[in-house]
């Protein structure tokens, strides 16, 4: 009985300290943010039904391929990486999978006004325009044209891409992950000029920030780092989960091994503890 009381005291002080130093302290240092919004509710809705074949035409005429490649349709990137980076600060990503990985509302909005959709309008304005120009339409109904482009990009997108591919399409123009050998094609100096800072290598971010943080951060970087240059990329929920899975693979690829071994070791220790208890009772019976 007395030992239980003592144990209670020890547990109380330990847990109290733990809660203070971890749970409470971190809640003060990293205030909670609203959950991720995969509807992108802040962007204007475009209810037009797009038509893929018209979209193909609009796409070709809108000048997109002046900067972006469309490998799956046999359209290579118009510039090599070095030249593209020198002209834009960042290499415009290939759009073959854009229809799959980016949310459709977001796509329409980002084509119309990239800085706004990416939540970078604090950084880009008329005197310092975003490297990707606003789309002002080809003379018809601009919302219809946007819907058509989106429909086109969706029609050519594959049904499924690998986790790595999502990362390559959405993040690699800025971030490297050296632990999987995926180096961004960026030149750090140009990148720093364009972004204000060199985007960090994401190899260990699953451990340094954790999956929860990544989920809200990628969905809307401004929530955690107000005023940051990192754009909102507009991934769908599924695509974003794939990116996070890839970042986890890069920085915590032994997770499954850890968890399955953990169960076995714990099982072993519990059995050993029971045996130790029985042995103790046997030995102490003689002296009590």
């Amino acid at each position: 009985m007395r030992e239980l009381k003592i144990l209670g005291v020890v547990v109380f002080f330990t847990v109290f300290t733990y809660i203070g130093v971890n749970t409470y302290a971190y809640s003060v240092m990293k205030p909670a943010v609203a959950p991720a919004d995969f509807q992108f509710k802040d962007l204007p809705r475009n209810d037009k039904i797009g038509d893929a074949s018209r979209g193909a035409e609009v796409f070709m005429n809108a000048g997109c391929i002046g900067c972006h490649g469309l490998e799956s349709q046999g359209i290579p990137a118009p510039m090599n990486d070095a030249d593209a980076a020198a002209s834009f600060g960042v290499v415009p990503p290939d759009l073959s999978n854009a229809g799959l990985i980016f949310d459709s509302h977001f796509l329409a909005a980002v084509i119309k006004n990239p800085a706004k959709a990416m939540l970078n309008d604090h950084k880009f304005n008329e005197s310092n325009p975003h490297p990707m120009p606003n789309f002002y339409g080809l003379g018809g109904d601009i919302d219809q044209e946007l819907a058509d482009i989106v429909a086109y990009l969706q029609s050519i997108a594959p049904e499924k891409v690998s986790d790595e591919q999502v990362y390559v399409d959405a993040c690699m123009q800025c971030h490297s992950i050296k632990y999987t050998g995926l180096m961004s094609n960026k030149d750090p100096i140009l990148m720093a000029k364009y972004m204000g800072s060199v985007p960090p290598d994401l190899s260990m971010f699953i451990r340094s920030r954790g999956a929860d943080y990544l989920e809200t951060f990628i969905n809307n970087p401004q929530k955690h780092l107000a005023g940051t240059a990192m754009p909102r990329v507009g991934l769908t929920q599924a695509a974003q989960e794939q990116v996070v899975a890839y970042i986890e693979y890069a920085g915590d690829r032994k997770k499954d091994e850890r968890e399955s071994l953990g169960i076995k070791v714990l099982g072993f220790m519990i059995i050993l503890t029971i045996l130790a208890y029985l042995w103790k009772v046997k030995i102490w019976r003689e002296v009590h």
């Binding site: 071994l261 714990l266 220790m269 503890t273 208890y277 103790k280 102490w284």
Partner: peptide
């Protein structure tokens, strides 16, 4: 030590729980 061994085992259960999870 019989008693210590038991206390050590209990501690190690908690310890390994922390190591893995």
């Amino acid at each position: 030590l019989a008693k210590d061994f038991y206390v050590v085992c209990v501690t190690l259960v908690i310890f390994f729980f922390c190591v893995f999870f």
